[in-house]
Amino acid sequence: MKKRPKKIVAQESSPLALVAEASAQEEQIVAETVDDKPVGVLRHDFERAALILNVTGDIPAWKTVDVEIKTRDDQLFTRQEVPIRGRPLVLLEETPLQPEDVIQITLKLHQQRAPR
């Protein structure tokens, strides 16, 4: 069963923000954009210990993104330079983080630092 988020998190300064809401364990957790467009389903892959977004909607056609994940207990997890290749998007690796722990995911276009 899919469950929609009940509230929209205020848009941050990032180019794109997604919202997620925890639900009962068997329920799929759907990620949506701040303007209510479904983006994909969040899941945890236990073999890889990875938090994965199975993309079903539209996401920007960037090559790589930086990921910021905010959890219910106000922790912030980040991962740099995540390639957007294919539909499953590995948001975090080597993590025990579960979809229901997440309240907000932010994808930012990866800014390559200019060489000195």
Binding site: F46, E47, R48, A49, E94, T95, P96
Partner: peptide, 9 residues
């Protein structure tokens, strides 16, 4: 047969 990630689990 299918080990969960040893570093985490």
């Amino acid at each position: 047969a299918k080990p969960p990630k040893p570093t985490i689990y």
